[in-house]
Amino acid sequence: MGDGANPNWLEAELEETLDETLEAELSEPMLSAELRRMYREAHPNALDRRTYIVHLLRLQAELIKLQTWVEYTGSRILIIFEGRDSAGKGGVIKRITQRLNPRIARVVALPKPTEREQTQWYFQRYVPHLPSGGEMVLFDRSWYNRAGVERVMGFASEAQVEDFFRDVPEFERMLVRSGIIVLKYWLSITDAEQQLRFKIRIEDPMKQWKLSPMDLQSRVRWEDYTKAKEEMFERTNIPEAPWYIVEGNDKKRERLNCIEHILSKIPYEDVPTDKVQLPERIFNPDYDRKTLPPELYVPKIF
């Protein structure tokens, strides 16, 4: 890893980013006083916002260096995020990709398989989304659905699950042998933390869309998911593509720790870049700029 962002740049970004995070957290007043109290009591040692933002900006500057290296070297990086519902997968992914080029850092979050896909080789629907040269791909859930929700909810038979456990280590070894850097993260939260987050989602109109009937069933079947997760670790934690567990009860620490770890596992380095020079604008004294009709303009409500 490099030395991080220039301190002057960091200070210049800090005020704007603090405003952005404040805006993102404006939904909190929609919660009842009781839920806000419960959340504060459940997180007495939560990382303060300013410390979090300073470290996040530093890490995001490093992610830009990583992106430049990936594009320059033609590297291929695959990062898998798994975890229980409400474990913070989307939040970590959002902070990783927030300042990156979406043509280089792609997020894959596949819907449930179609009838046609259900007849295919299990890994087939995922293969087209694997990284090409110069790409980072982040999977918000992955083929490990078969070891988790599909198994627990009965969408896959035990024979299909057994086939998966037999196949996935070799499938991932093939990816690594082909030159893809594979990182697998399990975002871990406690039973009590998930219950609290679900209560917040139920009450908060800004977050209700995140709840599905399947999410609610995950509460009922907490222990079944635990057993499935334990066997998944036991049978798919291979040297070529090991699992890494990120403790996630404190969302801010979860994000920072995960990004730090990603950067530590990829051998990126500074690459030569040309200094950008702003060219002179061509000025044509004979050009007469046309006046566009007012109906083309968005009304200035604000």
Results as ranks from 00 to 15, higher is better:
185 Y>W: 04
192 A>T: 12
158 E>Y: 02
33 A>R: 06
119 T>P: 00
200 I>H: 01
266 I>N: 07
260 E>S: 09
293 P>I: 05
139 F>M: 09
27 S>M: 00
185 Y>H: 01
71 E>L: 07
240 E>M: 11
68 T>K: 10
268 Y>T: 02
260 E>H: 11
75 S>I: 00
295 E>P: 05
7 P>G: 04
237 N>Q: 04
206 M>T: 09
207 K>N: 06
200 I>Q: 02
171 F>P: 00
61 A>P: 00
288 D>R: 12
201 R>L: 03
181 I>W: 01
292 L>R: 05
270 D>C: 00
79 I>D: 02
169 P>Y: 00
142 S>N: 06
32 S>Q: 06
164 F>A: 07
178 S>F: 03
261 H>F: 01
225 Y>A: 06
227 K>L: 14
16 E>D: 08
281 R>I: 13
93 I>M: 01
262 I>K: 05
85 D>M: 09
280 E>N: 04
145 N>H: 11
188 S>Q: 14
201 R>F: 05
279 P>E: 08
11 E>N: 13
70 V>E: 01
195 Q>V: 03
44 P>V: 09
152 V>I: 02
280 E>M: 06
270 D>I: 12
49 R>V: 11
121 W>L: 10
102 P>S: 11
263 L>T: 00
127 V>I: 15
251 K>S: 07
187 L>E: 04
84 R>Y: 11
273 T>Y: 07
121 W>Y: 14
96 I>E: 01
286 D>S: 10
161 V>I: 14
229 K>Y: 08
99 R>I: 09
121 W>R: 13
234 E>H: 14
66 L>P: 07
88 G>C: 10
213 P>N: 11
9 W>R: 13
154 G>C: 09
28 E>L: 15
161 V>Y: 02
106 R>W: 09
172 E>H: 00
161 V>D: 02
245 I>N: 03
216 L>K: 13
105 A>F: 06
141 R>C: 07
55 H>N: 13
47 L>F: 03
185 Y>Q: 04
15 E>D: 10
249 N>W: 09
53 I>S: 03
93 I>R: 03
112 K>M: 07
30 M>Y: 01
269 E>V: 11
111 P>F: 13
168 V>K: 01
173 R>H: 05
10 L>R: 11
35 L>F: 04
203 E>H: 02
62 E>V: 00
81 F>N: 09
77 I>Y: 05
97 T>V: 15
101 N>D: 15
115 E>Q: 15
